[in-house]
Each structure stands twice: as C-alpha cells, then as structure tokens.
Design a binder for these strands. Structure first.
Length: 775
DNA sequence: GACCTGCTGCGGATTG
C-alpha cells in the first residue's frame, strides 16, 4: 500500500523524503496523496497537532507544483497566526529546498522588500494571513490577477478557528474573489485538530458542492486521560477554614427548598441569616480560598512544564501574584510565569521560548496558548473554573499528553460562592460545578458545539463591499451582489436586504453612485478603507502602551489605566503609574511595591449552548457520583440536587415567592435573552442570571401573555438596548441593525418551545395554556 | 459572565 501513494509523487519529492530520513509515510498522508492525485475533490484532514497534517497537505501539493511550474503563485497557505506561519515557513523551505519551488511568506512582520519581490516575480507557495491577503486586494487590486491566476491549491490551517466567525467569513469572501480570477477553480485543503461537524466544514470549503470534499481522519492513538475536578467554596464576607461539611450543606439545601415550596419565601434575608449564624466563628481563620487555591496549584504544578488556563486575565494575574508570594522564599523555585494578550510581544516571546526549552516552567495563560505554537512537552493542564464551551475544554486538554505513552492530564479547579452572597438563585445550584460536570460528560461523548450559520455578517459584508470598490475603483450594484452574496459567502443576505444596505451606506457617505451607475467609495468610505485597521474584519480595541524605561510591558484599554500615582499588577509584577502621555497613548510606569490589583480588562460575555445547559439539568436529575469530582464537590453537588428536587425546580422549572416567579428554562444564553425581551414586550419586569429568569409577576397566569402575543424576531431585537456588536455596525441604519441582531441574538422558535414546555408541565396535557401552580 | 487573532508603500535621510 505504502508504495502506491509514494510512487505517485514527483521523483524530487521522493528524494526529499529519503533525504530527510523519514521511515514511513503515515496512513493519512498516503490517503491525502491518493485523493489529490486520483480525484478532483477538496480535502479535509483531521489529525492531532504533530500528527503530520501539514505534510499530508503539502506532499501532494508540492509534487503537483514540481510537475508544472507557472509564473504566478500556485499554492496559498492561510494561517491564523504569524507565529504559525513562521513555523510552517521553515518546514516548507526544508522540504522545497532541492525542488526549485519558491516559498514566500507575507504577514505584518515580513519586510517590504520581500513582499515586493513576490509581486514582481510571483511563483510557488505563499504563506499568508487573511488580513495580508486583504491588503493585496486593497493595495494591488490591479496586480491580483497576474500574481494569483495559476493558484490551484489553497491550504487552510487551524480551520476550526475560522468556522462560524467574522474572520472566517472574511477569509471565505477573499477566497471567493480569488476564485473569480484564477484560471481553474482552486482545490481547498482544510486542516484541523478538532472539528465538531465535518459536514459544516465541508460547506465552508465549497458551499455549492459540499459533497466534493473528501474528509480524512487520522487514526488517533488511544491515549490515557487523567481528569479531575477540585472545588473551593468562598464568600466575600466569610474567610473559610474547613469548608462546611455535607450535613450543613444538606440542611441548608432542605431549609431553602422548604421555603420555596411554601411559596412565600424571602430568600434574600433568610440566606444571609442562615450562613452568618452558621459560619460566624470561622471568620477569624486566616486564608481565603484564592490563597488555598494558589497553594494547591504550587503542589500540583510545581515541577516540569504545565499550562494553567483561566478565563479572566485579572484572575490569572492575581493567582500568579499569590503563587509568587508563597514561593519566593524557596530556593531554586520552579518558575511560574504568565502569558496573555495584553502583554507585549517581547514578553510573550520570552515565555514561549522558555516553555519550548524544556526548562521546568508553569504558565498561567488565557486562550493565547490554546492553539498555535507547539509547546513540546506539557505534562499537565490546569483550568481555573470550567470553560464556557466543550470545544475549549477539548482543545485545552489536548495541549498535554502529546508524546506516545504519556497520559493527558487536566485538573479543573472550580470556585463556588457560599449561598450567603447575592449570587441569585442559580448560586444555590453551584453552577460552576454543574457546568464542569456537564462539559465533561459531553466531552466524553465527543459532542462539541456546532457553529452558528444563521448569522448575516452584515458588518463583514460592508467591509468586503468597500474592499471590492477599493480594488476595482468602481462596480455596478448587480456585480457586487453577485460577487459577495449570490456567489460569495454572504448567502443569508438577499437582494432586498443588500439594496437596503447600499442605501444606508449612501446616506452615511460611505459610497456614492457615478452617473454611469457605478458605485464608488465616497469621502468617508475612502477614509475608512485607507486606515491601517481596515485589513481586519474583526474589531480591535484601541489600546495604550505600558512602558518601563525602554521596555514595553503590555497594552491596556484606556478605561483600565489607573491615574498617575496609582498601581496595578501586570505580567506578575507590581507597577506604579508615573506619567501618562496622551498624544502617543503611552503610560510610563516604575516598579511598585504594593499588592496591587490587576487592571479591569473589560471583556464581552458570550454564549453558552443550550445543549450544555440541558446537560446541567440532567446532572441534577441523576444521582451518580462522578468519580472525577473531589469530596467537597460531591458534597455541593448532592446539596444542589437536594435543593433542586425538594424545591420542585426539576418538575416545572418554576419557583414562586415574594411576588416573583423564578424560572429555569434549562436553555442557553440566546434563549434566555429572547425570553427576557418577550417579557419586556409584555411589560413584565425580568432579569436573568446564568441559568434562570426572574419575572416580577404574581402568578404564572401573567406569563400567559408571552405565549399569546405574536412576536417576530425583529420586534424583539428592536428592544435590545445596544444593537451594535461588530466592527462596521455603526455604518448601518437602525433598521438594518435590528435585522442583524434578530438573526444572531434571538431564537424565537426555541423560546416559544420553552414556553410551551412550561405550559404543558403545569397542565400535564397538551393544551398550551399556563395554569397557576399555586392556585 | 471571557478570551484571541491582524495590519501600507513610498520617499527621503543616513550610513558603510
């Protein structure tokens, strides 16, 4: 078999394989070679990092190129990160060394003369980012056909990072525009480690003919996984000694549940009372739970190389600070470091080098280290609080146990507040533990969130529209619609919506119409298209640089910068602001001595999928004791189950009391948002937390209005307080924004489904009417 | 109730 595929390759490629001392060509690589040589199909290759994906794509591609050199770029590799492109560039250069196939790279850090050389003498393989490809259209539109006309392959690396988001739609549009000028339709090869649904990836690769995509999956070696969840209980007003035992938690759960069953429970007051009297004498004992957590992290991650993920940069900074305070006295201490997107490039590169060197290092990190650079031997992965998606959990777990025979290790550390805080009713269900268990179950079952293909991506379409006009100098509206919508990736935008968008852009002086009918960029559009920021479809925040002497430390949003004299933690060190230079957006700092707080990085929340929330309900209904959960966690889970069962929460999902109805629909973020807006439209005050919605209503009869009223997704989206989300949303009329938000924030079907379910549970039959359970 | 990614060409002055 192996001879088969190998013999298809160009003799020069065969020689290169010998010279590099390869012992075998892997199965997935052989199949890729056969697919490229014996069919005309696109290709989707799924394999672990270091599973030979890149070679699977490039062995046959290079071989084809060596057979027929042309005077334009012949293959494009698109990568999401500059660092990844640099890595692959080196590998490809080695492979192509004796084949006379030029290898070029183009991204923001590549010197101008190299880019110029490619433009003057195009050929071979080009490694590029989506944004740099965009810059080719914008700045050398007239040259694009000459430079790219013989492109016959497009390789998309880390493809999962492009699915279902603005950057991916942007890339898809660029590739569609490219395909319009190449002499033959380029074949696309997608590479990914984790793909939820290969069918959807196939639609991304070729929306007109997804069945022409051959999916190859590398047989992954069976690997051992060690996985555990450890729990910490904390309260701002209470410094824990030993956590409350199972009996105390059960008693608390039962008391609270009894109150809710009676229907006249003032939970805000009662909660405070119960916990204050129970735990008052524990207050004097010193450590807070963050310190306990830091101590455990030192124990678990104090040797070899590890990654500890967290979903908040501020939390990571404070944990590192805590860890450092506990380890400074130890001689020859194992290094704990930090890596996230607000630290300067040089700081991050230093950490990356250290991690790759094998020198024992543990990095606190955000999703910056979730993909991309290959850190050799990660022994174990830590996760502070469960992530928000299964996809993220899978990706992070996959960073350890990469060597054969070595287990992948993940330790999740969850923090829960004691119910004395005003965490809302959801707090009584210990939602972090529930989510940790639910995500783990779904991960084991190999379920991953599908991506959302209902979105309109109007903002990205506007960016591409401006790019087309900049490239060509002017186009007819019909040609634009064909390029972007009917033949491009913006298929959810129909002719009517497209026309409305053009009018909106005309009103804002982004575009104007010439007497001959051509649309061109107007003054404001020209200005936007000339900005450096134009090349990316996603929104970048305006940030200030933090500098100590000549060293850049990182970037912060202006809102997170303390006044002169104020202090902050960044990169695990304490700093004091000495001078702020407004013009150049520079903040000069000197080392501080204090125990400062990390800056308030202000992020956006995002969606939890309904499937995850439903699984959380199932976890409450079941009574297994997950083996991966520690004793404290099992105690809290048991208490949450007791409360859920005895309060009636699992029967109909509703609790009534104090003039309020608290409803757990067990659905995801989008459904909760929709239900809240429906209540708003019916003049019922509503607020939501992680899992539930609180209605200001006396009886469930009041909620009948939500089922009776005729809603449209648009009528609900209209009620959103903030309607701009994406980069060019400000260029769209209110009417268009409502249409966009109706598509990406509202799920009317699911909300009505949830309401019907609620109605049925009260009736016990299919009447679709809400009866008051208290009546 | 969070995170991440990316990014001109050109002309003129200076240096070896």
């Amino acid at each position: 078999m192996s001879q088969d595929a190998f013999s298809l390759l160009h003799s020069g490629v065969q020689r290169a394989i010998y010279e590099m001392g390869w012992k075998e060509i892997r199965e997935v690589q052989q199949e890729a070679i056969r697919t490229v040589y014996q069919t005309d199909n696109h290709l989707l290759v799924c394999a672990q990092t270091a599973g030979g994906k890149t070679e699977a794509a490039f062995l046959p591609v290079i071989s084809k190129l060596a057979d027929a050199p042309k005077d334009s770029v012949q293959a494009i590799y698109v990568g999401p990160l500059k660092a990844l492109i640099n890595d692959q560039f080196r590998r490809l250069e080695d492979l192509c060394e004796h084949l006379e196939i030029p290898v070029h790279r183009w991204h923001g850090d590549v010197p101008g003369n190299q880019k110029k050389r490619l433009r003057e003498n195009p050929g071979g393989i080009l490694l590029i980012t989506p944004e740099s490809l965009e810059s080719n259209f914008v700045n050398f539109g007239a040259d694009v056909p000459r430079v790219y006309r013989h492109v016959s392959f497009v390789v998309i690396d880390e493809m999962h990072s492009f699915l279902g988001n603005e950057r991916g739609i942007h890339l898809r549009s660029l590739l569609a525009r490219l395909g319009a000028i190449t002499e033959t339709k380029p074949r696309i090869i997608g590479l990914s480690a984790t793909l939820a649904e290969p069918e959807e990836a196939a639609i991304y690769i070729d929306p007109d003919a997804p069945d022409t995509v051959t999916a190859l999956e590398a047989a992954s070696a069976q690997r051992e996984v060690k996985f555990g969840v450890k729990t910490y209980l904390e309260s701002p007003s209470w410094k824990p000694g030993p956590p409350p035992g199972p009996e105390a938690l059960q008693a608390l759960a039962e008391t609270l549940a009894a109150g809710f069953r009676a229907g006249d429970f003032d939970w805000k007051q009662e909660q405070g009372e119960i916990l204050d009297s129970d735990y008052a004498d524990e207050r004097e004992t010193g450590n807070d739970s963050t310190t306990l957590l830091a101590t455990d992290l030192i124990k678990a991650f104090g040797k070899e190389t590890n990654l500890i993920f967290g979903d908040s940069k501020a939390l990571l900074e404070s944990l590192l600070n805590n860890v450092n305070q506990q380890t400074t006295s130890a001689s020859g201490a194992h290094a704990f470091v930090i890596h996230h997107g607000s630290l300067s490039r040089s700081q991050r590169e230093e950490i990356e080098t250290r991690l790759k060197s094998g020198q024992p290092t543990t990095a606190f990190c955000s999703s910056t280290l979730e993909m991309g650079i290959d850190i050799g031997n990660v022994r174990a992965v830590g996760q502070i609080n469960p992530p928000w998606t299964v996809a993220s959990m899978v990706q992070r777990l996959g960073r350890s146990g990469r060597r054969a025979g070595v287990p992948a290790i993940m330790r999740v550390f969850t923090q829960e507040n004691t119910p004395s805080t005003r965490a809302g009713l959801s707090g009584l269900l210990y939602p972090n533990i529930l989510r940790a268990v639910a995500l783990t179950r779904l991960m084991v079952r190999k379920w991953v969130e599908p991506f959302d293909n209902r979105q309109l991506h109007l903002s990205t379409m506007v960016q591409q529209l401006m790019s087309c006009l900049k490239q060509t100098g002017g186009m007819q509206a019909g040609a634009l619609f064909e390029t972007l919508c009917s033949k491009g990736p913006f298929r959810n935008i129909d002719a009517g919506l497209f026309a409305t968008t053009l009018r909106s852009l005309g009103e804002k002086e982004i575009i104007e119409q010439m007497p001959g009918g051509d649309l061109i960029l107007a003054l404001e559009g020209e200005r936007l298209a000339n900005e450096l920021d134009f090349y990316a479809a996603f929104m970048g925040s305006e940030e200030w640089t933090l500098r100590h002497r000549n060293e850049d430390l990182g970037q912060l949003p202006s809102s997170a910068i303390p006044p002169v004299g104020g202090g902050l933690m960044l990169g695990g060190r304490s700093w004091r602001v000495e001078e702020i230079v407004e013009n150049s957006q520079l903040v000069y700092v000197i080392p501080g001595k204090g125990k400062d707080a990390a800056p308030a990085f202000r992020g956006q929340g995002s969606e939890v999928h309904s499937r995850v929330v439903r699984e959380m309900k199932t976890v409450l209904e079941d009574d297994d004791e997950p083996a991966f959960l520690d004793e404290a966690g099992r105690g809290l889970l048991a208490a949450a189950r007791t409360f859920a069962r005895e309060s009636g929460l699992l029967d109909d999902g509703c609790l009534c009391g104090g003039g309020e109805i608290i409803w757990f629909p067990w659905r995801g973020t989008r459904c909760l948002t929709t239900l809240k807006l429906m209540a708003d439209a019916c003049d019922i005050k509503a607020a939501d937390d992680a899992l539930s919605i609180r209605f200001k209503a006396k009886s469930t009869e009041d909620l009948q209005a939500l089922l009776d009223k005729d809603f449209t997704a648009e009528s609900l989206a209209k009620r959103l307080p903030v309607k701009t989300r994406e980069k060019h949303d400000e260029l769209l009329s209110e009417e268009l924004l409502i249409t966009a938000r109706a598509a990406d924030q509202i799920d009317l079907d699911e909300a009505q489904d949830a309401l019907m379910e609620l109605a049925l549970s009260f009736r016990g039959e299919s009447s679709g009417k809400l009866d008051d359970p208290g009546a």
